[in-house]
């Protein structure tokens, strides 16, 4: 039984629903946290240890890159993946240069499985 925790941060309810279903179906041993923006995410993570973060880029308030920077300061070992519709090369390079994974929306079970392989789960 895994004790691992993931968080999805996305202002889209649909995007969060999709991730919720994937985790419920294929990764039921994970705890999944959900936040609709960066501030909510930081508040949720303040007293929890999170292993994996799936972060949207285009959100009200803090964007996904700025949020990832903040999360890396507080939890450097966390695996963070930008899950975004903004698939421009410069965005991918920026994400990867920060050590973030880069996932093109829409997310699906195969893409989550790839992330899991990447983090050795």
């Amino acid at each position: 039984m895994s004790n691992q925790t993931a968080i999805i941060i996305d202002d889209s309810s649909l995007a969060r629903m999709m991730v919720r279903k994937i985790f419920a179906t294929s990764m039921a041993d994970w705890t999944l946290l959900e936040a609709a923006n960066g501030d909510e995410a930081l508040a949720l993570m303040a007293d929890k240890s999170v292993d994996l973060a799936l972060v949207d880029f285009n959100m009200p308030g803090m964007n996904g890159i700025d949020l990832a920077e903040r999360m890396m300061e507080t939890a450097p070992s966390m695996s963070i993946h930008l899950v975004t519709a903004n698939i421009q090369e410069r965005m991918r390079i920026r994400a990867e240069s920060m050590g973030l994974g880069f996932i093109k929306k829409p997310i699906n079970a195969a893409k989550v499985a790839e992330i899991m392989k990447h983090i050795g789960h």
Partner: peptide
């Protein structure tokens, strides 16, 4: 969200 995905592709 679909619009966001659409414009993401268009912006690329």
């Amino acid at each position: 969200e679909f619009f966001n995905m659409g414009l993401g592709m268009a912006a690329d």
